[in-house]
Design a protein around this nucleic acid. Structure first.
Lengths: 341, 341
DNA sequence: TTGAAAGCGCTAACAA
DNA sequence: TTGTTAGCGCTTTCAA
């Protein structure tokens, strides 16, 4: 096939951009047929072959903006996470992208860095992008925009404001805390203290599970609310160690806090004799410190997959009642909570 | 202002979508004036106020696809990383997004998971998105597409294929390795072994720096090429420890490998008496293991910022000769390489 | 099944 | 400065 590109063209952009009209001309068919071929719809085999050859020879790249504008379908979902440097959210991002990819959807990833203003900004942006739906891990603070007020369907993950009416996929935080307390108790620990995020719903629920479990077991509870910020966790740990009757076990309610707890214990010189440690989020490094840290692993793949499924359900049934899916965590027992003599 | 939305409209999408024409009508101006107002161009203050009020009352959201199609400017750059779960790339992503944000640009983040096929796919997608430019951390294997063949400007980061003609921002890998070897030698270590990625350019260069430094110091070199894959690093560490004259110091050539080395040493029961450890990438956990791991911190912010700046330079001067910027790493000394008695 | 024609929502060119 | 008009590149009618 001989390809002759016009030296100058009207009606299809400036020189150098190849459009669907050029492909059509090269293949000797109409633009509509090229479009149908690319969309995988029924086209005469001979024509299809000609179009495919022309696409190859021209190096044609469809303009997605034009396609989206006309077809009114972006084939894109938005994923807004609170902290991209937190490995939990990175893992979520990968899981969501995988699930989207399997359905032929693309993902726009946004990072709010726990800033409600950026959350509002990105939700707005998602509307302007006309995304099919949004999966949102809200910031710790109550978001400025109610998800239900948006023009696009939203599924919340990880955190869910109380009393809200939305689709959400959450860890069963109470049950997870309970597992940790029960495990520590079974290992012979009795003075179990807990550090929980002061501002997030997740922190509240993990704390509630801790309080319920310690009460049921007749243990003294010491639940500390830790504000977000550098050095806060370390200060709380120092205060706990300074107690007249210091704890023999510590629970940290997320991966970031867990690392801070360990840093604080190191700084305090608490070695083998220091308290047992348990936490959340199975990050790779947790295997190599303190003889391995006992923790709750979140089912990240499932959370991503389930959130995607819920989003698609919502698209098909906009008026179905909203629902919350709770997934269970997995207790991974390692050396940090070994029985002591 | 009284807002009357037409019960049905022609020429501006289906019922329920608010377009620029609706806003214009509500404000009593032309669509062009609305457009100019939103773009921040010169508009009569009274009209501007009317438009802003109309935007607020209608809940208008500009359609970005339409805007991009018409203006031929997506205001978007693509960032393609090799492994989103690697904290180095997460940090890069955040730095790039920050730099883009400061310039009013958006970022599309793509993750190839070290798969050259996905890299090709995403580069193609970036062309179809008509992004302004791409920042690419190539996969370990030689990529299927030469960056120079693409329709969009590309800046490489972290890794750069040999002999290629492209813009790139790289760590001075040879110098970084040299710093580690010199430091270990100064601390009294003499049998320094190194583990280097077998397939990436980065691994090769860090290895070259290691070999040059050990040769200069008159030390015996033992550089192992470690294939990518689970358990590979652990196997190499085991082999090193089984040497007749086992190394007294180990260098791991990236953050992921560093963690594997530590895991392997733990498994081998090498405690205080085990080899000194040094590595790359200042991840948060490195502070709390082995008394703190001595390592080279990469200037992540700078890499992101410099890559963005190069991209914009390239846009303004498409024909300027391509250049490579090398940034220096910072040696952070911690307990893992303390002098031993 | 194919082609001609219309138009997605917006901005840029032009004229006033 | 403002409004009118045209058209970005594509898909989707509609008629053949």
């Amino acid at each position: 096939m001989v390809l002759t590109l016009p030296a100058s063209r009207t009606g299809n952009g400036f020189l150098g951009t190849i459009g669907i009209r050029d492909v059509a001309k090269a293949a000797g068919v109409s633009p509509a047929t090229v479009s149908r071929t690319l969309a995988g719809r029924a086209v005469d085999p001979a024509m299809r072959a000609a179009v495919e050859a022309a696409v190859r020879e021209t190096g044609y790249r469809p303009n997605l903006a034009a396609r989206r504008l006309r077809s009114r379908d972006t084939g894109t979902i938005g994923l807004i996470v609170a902290d991209i440097r937190n490995p939990f959210f990175t893992a979520i991002a990968r899981a969501v992208e995988e699930a989207a990819y399997a359905r032929g959807l693309r993902v726009i990833l946004c990072n709010t860095d726990e800033d409600p203003a950026r959350e509002t900004l990105y939700l707005r942006l998602m509307e302007e992008e006309r995304v099919t739906g949004v999966i949102l891990a809200p910031t710790r603070e109550t978001p400025a925009v109610r998800a239900a007020d948006l023009a696009v369907p939203v599924v919340l993950i990880d955190r869910s404001p109380p009393g809200g009416d939305h689709d959400a996929v959450l860890l069963d935080n109470r049950a997870a805390s309970t597992m940790l307390v029960d495990h520590l108790h079974a290992q012979g620990y009795t003075r179990i203290a807990g550090l929980f995020g002061a501002t997030s719903m997740t922190g509240h629920e993990r704390r509630a599970g801790y309080l319920a479990a310690t009460a049921r077991l007749g243990l003294a509870a010491d639940a500390r609310a830790v504000p977000h910020g550098p050095g806060e966790t370390e200060a709380v740990v120092a205060a706990l160690l300074a107690r007249a009757d210091p704890p023999d076990a510590l629970i940290a309610s997320n991966g970031v806090m867990l690392l801070s707890v360990i840093r604080a214990l190191n700084a305090a010189g608490a070695g083998q004799a220091g308290p047992a440690i348990a936490g959340f989020d199975n990050e790779p490094w947790t295997e190599v410190v303190c003889g391995g840290v006992t923790l709750i692993e979140q089912p990240v793949e499932q959370i991503g997959g389930e959130a995607m499924a819920m989003l698609l359900d919502r698209l098909h049934q906009p008026d179905a009642s909203r629902r919350t899916v709770m997934l269970g965590g997995r207790l991974i027992v390692r050396g940090s909570t070994a029985r002591r003599e």
